[in-house]
Write a protein that binds this DNA or RNA. Sequence first.
DNA 1: GTCTATATTTCGATAGAC
DNA 2: GTCTATCGAAATATAGAC
Lengths: 192, 192
Amino acid sequence: MVRERVEEAKGTRERILDVALDLFVEKGFDKTSLREIAAQLGFSKAALYYHFASKDDILLALHHRLHQLMFVDDGWPLGGQRITVGLWVTMLDGFIDKIPANRQLIALHERNRAAFEALHDKEHERVHGDLDEQLLAALEDPSIPDRQRVRMAVAFAGIMGGLLFSGDSLGGMSNEEMVDELKRAVHAVLEV
Amino acid sequence: MVRERVEEAKGTRERILDVALDLFVEKGFDKTSLREIAAQLGFSKAALYYHFASKDDILLALHHRLHQLMFVDDGWPLGGQRITVGLWVTMLDGFIDKIPANRQLIALHERNRAAFEALHDKEHERVHGDLDEQLLAALEDPSIPDRQRVRMAVAFAGIMGGLLFSGDSLGGMSNEEMVDELKRAVHAVLEV
DNA sequence: GTCTATATTTCGATAGAC
DNA sequence: GTCTATCGAAATATAGAC
């Protein structure tokens, strides 16, 4: 049936993305070759081009995963709504809940910022709003005092980047404790 | 005189590093070619090899700059001293003071984490202790409660990463205000 | 959908003159 | 210290068979 073929293709596509995600995090986007991705999947490099038009396209798809993670549900991207500190906290709390299941994706972004931005420059018509770009736009709202905007930036960067450190050294903590403490930290920064 | 030749060489070396720093931040380490660096300096690619043994060597020198920035003065790297939250705050406060004059260097690290780590893997004998590695070691001290270590990680990541956002959108703030507010945020996270 | 083989390009690095 | 010229390696991407 057509249905089966479609799902099989989709499955392979997702498998490629999973492998690419692991390698991009471990070695970095630029130092990971398509040959390596293909080898780990058990087929040849050329086969990747049946599923993705280019290497950038693979990163773009992973970008999309992260984008979905941040901007779906949770009331984002705030269709026209003006940002407030309260909304910011709500958004970050929602995001923190998703962290344990999506560490790799966040690590990808943290460790390959330059590659993501180059992608954005090149394919600006497809990447309509980069992650950082949308958050920056929210932080540019002049109706919020500068000092509060600094706090909002620190809070966001703290949970994104703090994860890289905590991943290895805090294995003793459960996900629930981690999530809970990240929220407390965010609330402390934003004085809620 | 020999003195003059030496200083001239040193000056060129530093100029190369300055240009490389700008390009590595803007385009990313991997997507910046030696040809571009040389072109911007007004001489040929091969000339770079008189001053640096390899492209990695240039990044290594910039790594050294960052290393100096973080671990000189300020009582680091804590020769054997056990880390405490109080010491952590002191260290971060000292670091925050240096931020305005060294934004590019921090941005380099934030935007090219993967490249830095690859460097570390390859030249482990020369990069005796990577930035993140030393900080991670401090955060692994089991005598500090897990929750407090999360806070310490968030505080550090917050000031490193928050800078990337604040750079563009908070041009209205003076460096003094920025430094002051970053310190307040750090203190809030660490409940000092 | 996956393969082999190859085209094309770009880059890091070296050799040797000046 | 800087140049021109070139090497060699690796990577992305394509062509065409199966």
